[in-house]
Design a protein around this nucleic acid. Structure first.
Lengths: 199, 199, 199, 199
DNA sequence: CATGAATGAGCATTCATTCAT
DNA sequence: GATGAATGAATGCTCATTCAT
């Protein structure tokens, strides 16, 4: 074919290389030249597949968002009670974010560098995802399983802040496995939603 | 005097202008030329006070860190029970972060752009601050006021993730005041630390 | 056939599309990619027929030159007196230039972009054409029909300047038809060659 | 001062060098690198004075237009009869165009490469100039000195075509001096405007 | 005949920083 | 203290052309 080297098509290889470099050095400090050198091709080849450096960034975002959205749907569609489903979803988003920590880090650090239009598109997708997640919380609040004296969207901002922040401290091989972190974060979320006992 | 225009010394005016521009457009998308133009001076004047553009960034960080550290010390030194002090500290860091949202946003977005040395220095200061905060949690855990089955540093990472994320969604004039957000966040933190009832 | 789409062979369609685009946007601002997209083929197809982008340009020139040369020959070969033949030739070159204004515009704007060799070739063809035209003037000068106190080649440079300049102002649908413009220009030429009356 | 080398300020030297190169090789085939190398400075220095390569082009145009406009005003304000004034103006524009043949050549070849806005500005200035010139012709037509059966603007398009075309053939040191060419062109113009004798 | 992936050289522009004044 | 002209290196991107299939 001539289009695979090392078993990966060039667009995918470029994305993988770019993801690693963006996470290591930041989007702006990574030059297109560095990306194509690391991928073993020339600039022309990259611009054959991606119209601009920004496209790499957006594609990385969308890949992550698509995955998280799909996993959330699967979990939400399950038969368990809402508390179990929220716990599973929360733990899963943490584990997924850690498994794709480079993508998540880039997301956090570099979204503001996209053009206004692209930011809008990414934000819209992100919002949709958050709203799906939030509907789980609201379902539990309506059912009385979760306390209702705190706005559900504030709980989401609280929780996703923690998720976005994972890249700032989590190191694989550290004291806790991704699953343990996911479990703890899910526990903290569920606990913070437990109805107040009579004071 | 001769060195104040509009009642503010030039270094402070440069910092204020840079803070605003960095928050609006990002650190690298803001040129030194734009900063000095917005401040009404020339490049030479800026380089007289700041050896490099990076210095502006670091100074903005340190200003915020100093303030937060001082406020934390005051709160921790109070006489209230540990739960009240943690609540107050948590609510205060939220209110302070919102009051200085530009600085906090820049911190989050641009720290990775500093040189390795400078990043180390900032991280060390940040770690020290987190450790002071964490000691409050640990104090409560030792006293049995807070659940001890979750690592205190994980709780901190969870909570500060939420704080750092404020810039992504909080808009002044929105549904909630900074104080209400601070209260809710502190509540969520305290609730999530409440000891498990017998299952 | 197999080689015609829309009733036109591919080389001709490529030339037609290129002519339009070159006239609209200029030669260098038109990329090969745009040309082949507008023609509905791929680059390989174009390079099958034209060895280089420059070839398109040169072919456009030569097409125009061939047509003008043939028409001039026909007119010159006529039986009318020299003044009538010059008038007809002058009017015809104007009408023809307007009918092929895109080609003429490109000629004017882009000839200097060809390689030195190609420029030489085009200039030689152009010179030959001008000389044929000039011989008409000289014939009239020898016969005493035209004033002889102005060099014939200067008259040609004067007149063809006006012809080349048509693209800068003529708009179809304007106040004058191409034939009217041709008539006026031929009149101006003939009048300017009228022998001086005794002063 | 530090701002003059060879007795010329840098902006002027850059313009002079750019004019020569643009005329030799065309605007698009001349790189900024070549310009600054020929001027003995770095790119940064050029961009300190000119915001874009286009600015050089526009400044060259405007310089030429300003000069021609000023000279025309002087000639038109003279006391001679209209035929003498038109002859003087026509001869002068030819001599001036030849004296600044590089600028005039660039004008012709490269105007279409400017942005739409800039083209509009240049065209407006050009039109204003042509209208001043045309008013001379119309004055003569009203006075009966010139034939009135040809539109004055068509005469202008005819004459300025010849002027613009000078760069295509005039070579200094050739058979005719600029003044002789100017005289001949002015003669051709005046002769072509001579009222028709009774046929 | 035709494709389209890939090349490689080139381009305009930006910008933090320096330094003579 | 302050100016602003000038540097110099880097950057994202374009594009005519080639060639294996």
């Amino acid at each position: 074919m001539g289009r695979t080297v090392g078993g990966e098509a060039l667009p995918q290889r470029l994305l993988a290389v770019a993801t690693r470099l963006f996470a290591e050095k930041g989007f702006e400090k990574t030059s297109v030249q560095e990306i194509v050198e690391a991928a073993g091709v020339t600039k022309g080849a990259m611009y054959h597949y991606f119209a601009a450096k920004d496209d790499l960034l957006q594609e990385i975002y969308q890949r992550l968002l698509r995955m998280q959205r799909d996993r959330l749907e699967t979990i939400m569609a399950g038969p368990e009670p809402v508390a179990r489903r929220l716990h599973a979803a929360a733990a899963d988003v943490v584990v997924t974010a850690i498994a794709n920590l480079d993508d998540a880090t880039i997301f956090l650090q570099s979204m503001h560098l996209l053009s206004a239009d692209r930011q809008r598109a990414v934000r819209a997708a992100r919002r949709e995802y958050h709203e799906r997640f939030r509907s789980l919380v609201e379902e539990g609040q309506r059912a009385g399983t979760f306390r209702a004296d705190v706005p559900a969207d504030l709980v989401m901002d609280y929780f996703f802040g923690a998720v976005h922040h994972l890249g700032a401290w989590f190191r694989s091989g550290g004291r806790l496995t991704p699953e343990q972190v996911g479990d703890h974060f899910a526990d903290l979320l569920l606990t913070s939603l437990r109805p107040e006992p009579a004071r």
